[in-house]
Structures are given as C-alpha cells and as structure tokens.
Design a protein around this nucleic acid. Structure first.
Lengths: 231, 231, 231, 231
DNA sequence: TATGAATGAGGTTTCATTCAT
DNA sequence: TATGAATGAAACCTCATTCAT
C-alpha cells in the first residue's frame, strides 16, 4: 500500500513534469553545455518576468549574453526552450525523495501532513513557473495533453490507494475512489495556485493543516486531537 | 445565515463574473445594438475556436459580417470585446436563481447537491469560455485581479456559512472556516475545469455525488445512507 | 504715398488672409447659419488644441454638438473648414482700421510704432492660429501659395513706400527697396512668431520699440530722442 | 569676444542643429553601418520629396533597398530617422569654419557679408530640409523646443557682441541688445526661408547685400562707400 | 560554434468619407 | 437638415526565423 504522500510530489495534478525524452542531442563540448545552460536559465528568468506570450527570443539571448543566432544553435523554438526550462524545474519539484510509506494507521496523518507540506513548499519555490505552465497549457495542446496525462498518472495512483484503504475498512466505502482522488488532488493544487502563483500568499501552516484535515475528514478517517489554527 | 448553495452559482471561484460597469456607451440606434451584439457573438465563437491569443480582430469582424472599422466603432481592443463576451456569459453562469435556504439539517445535503449540480451544468455550458478566462487571466493582470476578487467574495461568504455551522455544532470546529472554504471551492471548480474545459468529460452525476459527499465528510457532517455510484 | 503702417495690419507677411471667394454657398436658413458658425468655432478650438494634423473631424463635430454627417453638410473637407476658420480670423487681423497716413516726417515714427503695436497685438490674439497656418502651409501647396501671394502684396506696397521715401531723400538710397521691404517685414513677423506662437513671450513694449528703431535705423531715418527700454 | 559672423552658421535661428547624443547605439558591423547610412540617405530623399507627414516608412525602406523590418533594426520611428537626417545635414550647416574675428571696424562689413553669404549658401543647399524642419517643428514639441533652444544660443551670442559694440561706441546705444539680436537674426533666416524654401528664389547677391546693409544701418554703424548692387 | 543583420508575414489601429434613415 | 453606423485603404509595428560571415 502506498500513501498519497509518496506520489504527490511527483506531479500532484500540476503536470509540471516533462517528458524525459530529450528534445535534441545535448551539446558535446563543455563550452556548448555552458552556453545551453545559460540560455535555459536566462529563458526561465525572462519567462517568469514577462510571461511566455510576451517574452521575446532576443531578450532571452541577450539575458544569456549570447546572440539570437546562438539561441538557434541549441533550440528550434520558444516551445523547445520552455520544455527545457520545465525539465530543470522538474528536478526541484521531485527533489524531496518522500517516504514511500506502508504506514501504521496512526502515522498516516503525519505522513500526509509532511507530504502536503513538501508539496506546498516546492510549489512555492516554482510558483512563477506554474503560472507559466498554466498559460502555456491554455495555448499549446501538446503541453495541455502532457499535463492531463501527468495528472492522470497521479490520480490513478491515489485512487488505488484510496481503494485499498476502503478495502481495509479505513475509508468511507461510499466514495468513488477515482473521482475522490481527482477532487482531493484538485483541491490541493488549486489552493497552492491561488496562494503562491496568484499571490494570495496565505499562511502555509494553515494551508497544510486544513488540507490534511480535509483529506482525513473527506475520506472518513479520523485525526488525533489537535490544536486548531488559522491564517 | 446564507447557505453555500445560495452563493455558489454567483461565482464559485470562477471569476467569470465581470464588472458591471459598461465599458463604453452602448449604441443608440437599434441597428447599432444589433451590430454590437453580432460582434460579441462572433467574438465568442472566434475566441472559443482559436483561443484568445490566436484570434484575430479581422476574423471577428468577418465572422460578424462587418468590417474591421465597425469593430472599432464598438470596442477599443480585444480585451474589451472579451469583457463584453464575459458579461453575456455571466448571465448564464448566474441564471439559476437557487434556493436561499435556511435549511433544516436533513435538507442541507439536498440543497448542496442541487447547488453543485447547477454549478457543474453551468460550467459545462460555458466550459470553453472558462478555458479562455484561464488563458486571459495568465496574460492580463486586470483579469487576474478580477478573478481573485470574485473568488474572495465567494469564499468569504462560504466561510461565514461554515462558521455558523460550526457554532451550531453541525460542523467540525477544528477547521479554519476561511481556509476550508477556499479548499472546498477550489476542489469543485478545478474538478469542473478538468472535466469540461480540458475535455476529460467525466460523468456529471458522479462528480456531483462525490463533490457533495466530500463537502459533507470534510466538514464533519453526515449524509443519510445512499447508494454508491461511480463514473 | 502710403505708409507701411497702413498696410501691415492687412497682412504683413503672414499670409493669414484668405481668399474672399466663398468655398461654397452659405446656408440659407438661420438654423443652418447657426450650425455652420458653431462648426467653424469648434474647428478653431480643436485645431488650436490638437493642431491641424492631429485633429479629427469627429472631434470637431462633437465639439460643435452636431454629428459628423452634419459636418459634411457644410464642408467638403478639413481643408475647407480650415479656410473658413482663417476667414473669420482675418477679420480680427484686419480689424484695426489703421490710419492711411500721408504723414509729416516727424510723425512717421509714431505711425510706425502704432502700426507695429497693432500688428503685434493682433498676432498675439491669433498666435495659435498662426502656428496652424505655418503648419498647414508646410503641408498644403495651396495654402503655401496663398501665403506667398499675400506676402508679396504686402511687401510690394512697402517697397513702393520705401522707394518714395528714397526719392524724397528721407531714406538710404543705396538700399534695394523690394529686398529691404522683404527683410523688414520678415523681421517683424518672425519676431511675433517666436514670441507669441512659440511661446517665448517677450515684452511687447520692448518688441515694439526695437522693431520701430530698427526700421528707422535700417532705412537711414532718424528717430527723435527717446528713453531706451528693454525686456 | 566673438563676432556674429563667427556664430551664425552654427545656428542662426534655424534650429537645424540636432542634439549630439546618439539616438541609439550605432551598428557594429561595417555592413550594418552601410545599411544605416543608406536608410538615412533614403529617408532624406523621401522626406524632401513627400514631406515628413506624407512620407511612409515603407517608402523609405524601399528607397534604401531594404525591408521594413530592417528599418526598425536601426530606428524606432519616423522621428528618429528624421533626427538622424538632421544630424547629417548639421555637418553641412556648420561646415564653413568661419573667421573668428576680433576685427578692425573697417573690416567688420566684410566679415558680416562673408558670414551672411555663407549662411545663405548653406541654407540654399539644405532648403528642402529647412521646410521639413519647419513642418516637424509645428507638429512635434520636441523639435520645437530644440529649435527654440538653438535659436536662443545664437541670439544670446549675437546680443553679447552687440553689447560690446555699444560699449565701444560703435553701435546705437539706445537699442536693446537682446531684442535687437532676435530681430536681426529673424530677418536673415526668414529671408532665406522665403527665397530658398518657399521657392521665391531671389538673387543671392542682393540678399547678401541688403542683409548686410540693414544690419549695419540698424545697429547705427556706417558702411564704407560701396558698389551698387543688383536685384 | 557564434554572430547579428535582414526579412516580411501578420497583426493592430486610425479616420476621412459615404449613405441609409 | 441632421444623424451616426459602416467602411476599408493605408499606415504602423513586431518578432520568430534565416543565413552569410
């Protein structure tokens, strides 16, 4: 049995994860690698500053202290650098190698909370990128598809976990595991979007606490007595 | 005390509601009004077909069987027609004059369910527009702000309702009403977005049922015995 | 023999005077005349505010509280209203029905001074219009021609006056009367342009005094002793 | 002490001189410099042919055998090329490194005459440009300001010279030096404008002679016996 | 690999003028 | 006479992409 916590950081509805396949061969020389890296870093800065739509390739080249010609040595298009930017960020979104738990019931609360916290923190670090991804997904069907697929992978896994909790008599059996999984994942990711991406900037402890309680209540579990807190 | 049901259809996190202020004086003649209306309708079709970004004003004018000059007689920019399009859609999103309940506890489930259903149905009818709004909100700070404000209005109202339920001993008192309100609203709107806007096209009955159960469970209420259902 | 004073107010190099021929028949009804007048007045205000180039016919119509359709009832084009505006201003530029003198030598200084003062004052009242005329003359050959012709009429007259002064032994005979006339007229009109039209806003008394002395000195006349003054 | 002759060609009321600051970085490659130069030359031809207002950027690009995109590589706007055109012309207007005189009184006439002649000749060569400048100054406040400032620099210098001539007892002490300076500068520049820019095309010798005599007479100096002049 | 000049399709915007009412 | 909606030619401007060096 896997906890939801184990999976969430790998995607959690965000679709921020990118296809592993390299868009093109990486440069061979060390110099080339450096140039490519500085282009990706510059692209991220420019995207976050101006948005994907309003960004210009020349700005990216300038920001990377290279020429536009050099840009085309490494990337074929804006979409391609954007993919590269996401690939880098992906490492951070995944980074917290979270506990794959087979947890005793009384520990689940703690694991869920840790997982939610890790997710919110990662989201916070990459909030501007998430806005970008949101933007690009509304424009480009490829990115939209990517995101839906990632989301499905995650919710399927959570659904299986919910199913097994139900079987074990630990969760409300009247719930549809898949739809419930989608709903709860939506809840957390959207909360993060409003707080970090749209700048609502709510108290993270309160977000973590509320999210964790709601998962528990919603699934028909019970949380040990705790101190209420608010934003 | 207002129930969530009474408020949700008026906004529910969508931010689809537009400022009431007219963007500019409406045309005086009947002919002018007809032209303006056909431009708004054409704009909606073009936006939904091509997206806001990829749409061209000339296409809108052509679709409305007018000249581009006529477009500028009524609107100053793409943003302005888009606002007009939202204003029209808003009527539909608000339309279901839902029961303002002071409900007996045993009826709350029914009211919540009706409210959720109405919301999902309205969302379905305007799904493409919601994608558009999502897109525009990532590009234009004004629309982003509009949306955040609308969302706040709605979640504040729900928070007050949750608070009063807690006081009446009908809801889990350990929950932060405001954060809980945000989380639950996020859940429903995001579910609708994935299903209708991103084309996941899930079973609406299942969505309504799951959403309603989760609100109940999450808030620590109890639902009368019911038949399980799935997607 | 005519004094320069007598002619200057009729034009003095400005070319502000417009062809007397009506551009089209004036409206017959009293109502029509009123509408036309308010259009001309509105046009002047708009031209002075926005310049000829940057003005829009719709603004003129709006300013006159009529419609653009009505504008075309009275005028065929922007040029045509502009002509009408000049015709009205012309009355003011001419207005000071100055003394046609056959002056005793000792009075010429006074007449010249009065004439210069009248010219500067009229120019001041119509300064914004003079900027406009300058602008239009650089764009439209018709207005340019008009202005050159007017200028010639004036300088010819002054040249004849200079010639007769030379014959009478009252002016430097080594001067070419025509070129001198052009030079002196240029001097006064340009001085006015800088002060009033370009906003240098010099002291008018000083301008009058200097202009009068320079005409006198330049023509080889002598002025009775006077108190020096400055800006 | 500088003579008016020494300064006039540097400005003389024309305001044709442009700010030295480069409008933007010049192109780095030789090819780029060539392209920029041909654009400036083409712009001048088009401006002189069609006027500033009626000129089109596409015409300038075509005339320079480049694309409109290339135009925007070097200039941001019509105003900016116009500035560049003026900068080039400025070299010609300034070019005659005129005698900086500390002249014996009997030589002043000759210096003044040479100065006037140089000014008229330069004006003649750039006459069409002066029309343009006149036009642009009536439209664009920046150019208007530039021109007023240039004019002030020049007239201030002349005023100081007049003042020192008065102190030396060589000029009419009843004249206000500054206003006199403005008047005389106006006279010469306007004469040139009518003759060369508006196409009156008067005899240059006569213009030079008249201008020189009038300066002399006006300032209360005396000219040695002279040869009769022509029309 | 790196450079940056050159390109031009494609969009937006303006406004004098027409014309049906 | 008065109205104001409709028109569309004509200009402006952007920027991803190509390519010679």
């Amino acid at each position: 049995m896997s906890s939801p916590g184990s999976g969430r950081p790998e995607g959690h509805d965000t679709g921020s994860l990118v296809d592993e396949r390299q868009v093109r061969a990486l440069p061979v020389t060390a110099r080339g690698q450096r140039t490519r890296e500085s282009l990706v870093a510059a692209a991220r800065r420019v995207f976050e500053r101006d948005g994907f739509i309003n960004s210009r390739l020349t700005d990216i080249a300038t920001e990377a202290h290279t020429s536009i010609g050099t840009f085309y040595t490494y990337f074929d298009s804006k979409d391609e650098v954007f993919t590269a930017v996401l690939q880098v960020a992906q490492d951070d979104m995944l980074h917290p190698g979270l506990p794959r738990v087979e947890e005793a019931p009384e520990n689940i609360a703690g694991v869920l909370e840790a997982s939610n916290r890790a997710y919110f923190e990662a989201y916070r670090r990459n909030a501007q990128l998430m806005v970008l991804l949101e933007q690009v997904a509304t424009i480009n069907p490829d990115f939209r598809r990517l995101r839906v697929e990632r989301s499905r992978l995650f919710t399927d896994r959570v659904a299986r976990w919910i199913g097994s909790m139900q079987e074990a008599g630990l969760a409300d059996r009247s719930l549809d595991p898949l739809m419930t999984s989608r709903a709860l994942a939506s809840m957390v990711s959207r909360l993060a979007y409003y707080s970090f991406a749209l700048g609502e900037d709510w108290d993270v402890d309160s977000m973590v606490d509320t999210a964790t309680r709601l998962w528990f209540n919603a699934l028909g579990m019970t949380l040990p007595a705790s101190s209420p807190e608010s934003a």
